[in-house]
Simulated assay, not measured.
Amino acid sequence: MSDFPAASGAPTPGTPITPSTATSDYTRRLARLEQAGIKRLLPTQAPYRWNLQRLHLGRVLDIGCGLGRNLLNCGPGSVGVDHNPHSVGTCRERGLNAYTPDGLAGAPDCGPGSFDSLLLAHVLEHVDEETAASLLEQYLPLVKPRGSVVMITPQEVGYRSDATHIRWVGFEELRGHAARAGIAVGRTYSFPLPRPMGKVFPYNEFVLVGRVAA
C-alpha cells in the first residue's frame, strides 16, 4: 500500500478522472509549467525524449496526452487522447493528432489492433485504482498483440507537487496494474536518476515497460 494518503476530494470508484484536470484552467496551468523556471533556458525534456525514443514504440496511443509533451516524441501516426477538450485543442494547434475519448471512438485508423504501443504517462496518479483498471481495459484492445505498454508515474517530490494527484503509484502498484490487465512486465526502472533521488528531484519517474498478451 502507499505511504502517501490520497488527496482530499478523491473520486469514488468509477469516476472517470479527477474533475479539475478537465478544465481550461488546468490546460493553462500545464502551458505555464512548460515554460517555468529553468525550462525556458535549457532543453530539460531531452532525457525524457530520449527515454521514449530508445524504446522504439512505433505508432503510439498516448492516453492522457495533455498538451502533447510526450506525443511530440512518439513515432509517425501516433495519436493522443485526453478527457480535457481544451488540452486536445492545444495538441491540435501544435499539429498533433489528438481526440477526446468520444472522438477517438469514431476516429479513422484507431480501431482494434491499430497501434504498436500504449503509453500511460503521468495519468495513473490522477485516478483511483478501479478507474485506472478501466482505462487499461478500454484502450489495450487498440494495441496489437505483443505490442508494448509503457506506464510512467512520479516519485515522491513530483507526487507531492500537484494537488490533482490522488494516489501513490510506485513500482508495486504499477506491477499490480500490469498483472490485472494481463500485461507481461519486461522491466521496471527509475528515470532519469537512481530511485533515491525521487525524494529530492521532482522529475524522477517510475517506469514500467511490458507487452500485451499475444
Rank of each mutant, 00 (worst) to 15 (best):
Y159H: 15
T90F: 13
L142V: 05
K39S: 14
L118F: 09
P101T: 03
I63F: 09
A184D: 10
V143E: 08
H56W: 00
L140Q: 06
T90H: 12
G68L: 08
I38C: 06
A179N: 08
N73C: 13
P194M: 09
T90A: 15
D128N: 14
L67R: 13
P108M: 05
P16R: 02
P112F: 02
G9I: 08
Y26A: 14
Y189W: 15
A163L: 13
S114P: 00
A132P: 05
G111V: 11
V169C: 11
Q155I: 01
S134E: 15
D109W: 08
A178N: 05
S190H: 01
R32I: 10
A133M: 13
T21N: 08
E172Q: 11
H83P: 00
H56N: 15
L142A: 13
S117E: 08
G106K: 03
P85M: 07
G186N: 09
H86S: 05
H122C: 07
Q138V: 11
L124K: 03
R49G: 01
G64I: 13
L136P: 07
R54N: 04
G75V: 01
S78V: 01
M151Y: 07
A98E: 03
T44H: 04
C65H: 10
D62H: 11
A181L: 07
N51H: 12
H83F: 12
V143W: 07
H126D: 02
G75P: 06
V212A: 13
E156T: 15
F115Q: 00
V79K: 04
Y99K: 01
A105R: 15
R175G: 01
G176Q: 12
G58D: 07
V169F: 05
C74L: 07
R54T: 14
G210Y: 05
L72V: 14
G37E: 13
G158Y: 08
P196T: 11
P76E: 10
G198I: 02
G158P: 08
V123T: 10
H165G: 09
V60A: 03
G9L: 05
L135T: 12
Q35I: 06
P47W: 07
Q155C: 11
P13H: 06
T12I: 04
L55I: 02
D25F: 03
E156L: 15
D62S: 08
I183E: 06
L193W: 15
L136D: 09
T100I: 07
E156G: 00
G89S: 14
P16W: 01
V60K: 05
N70G: 03
V212C: 15
S24V: 12
S24L: 13
G198L: 03
G80Y: 10
G170T: 13
P11L: 03
